[in-house]
Amino acid sequence: MNLDEAIKRVRSDMGLSQEALARELHVGFTSVNRWENGHTKPNQIARHALIKLCKENNIEPELIEIIEKIR
């Protein structure tokens, strides 16, 4: 599984729309959309916020690991 699929799966597992995830992470909707479409990757701040949100919501460790490997 690659990063865009992992982000989409995290969002789906949490039952959030792209807009709702964007609000949770304090980023724009277009950022989440671009991540899920593989056009861009989350910056360091967004990545840390996403990892924290995943851990707080007991998301599968495998998905968190994919997100943590972003460089």
Rank of each mutant, 00 (worst) to 15 (best):
Q18I: 02
K8G: 15
T30S: 15
R47A: 08
I59E: 01
I7V: 14
A6D: 05
K55Q: 15
R34Y: 15
G38C: 02
H39C: 00
L3K: 06
Q18V: 02
P42D: 01
L50T: 11
K55W: 05
P61W: 06
V10P: 07
E24T: 04
E56P: 04
K55S: 10
I64S: 00
E36K: 12
A6T: 10
N57C: 09
A22R: 10
L25A: 10
N58I: 10
T40W: 13
L3H: 09
E56T: 10
I7Q: 02
C54L: 01
E65H: 12
N2Y: 03
R71W: 13
L3P: 06
E36T: 06
G15H: 05
T30R: 07
V27W: 07
D4M: 09
Q18D: 00
V10T: 13
G28L: 07
A6E: 04
L25V: 09
N2F: 08
A6C: 03
V10W: 03
R34H: 14
C54N: 00
I70E: 01
N37D: 03
K69Y: 09
L50C: 06
S17Q: 01
R9S: 12
D4Y: 13
E60D: 15
L16E: 00
E19Q: 03
G38K: 07
K8E: 10
E56I: 07
F29M: 09
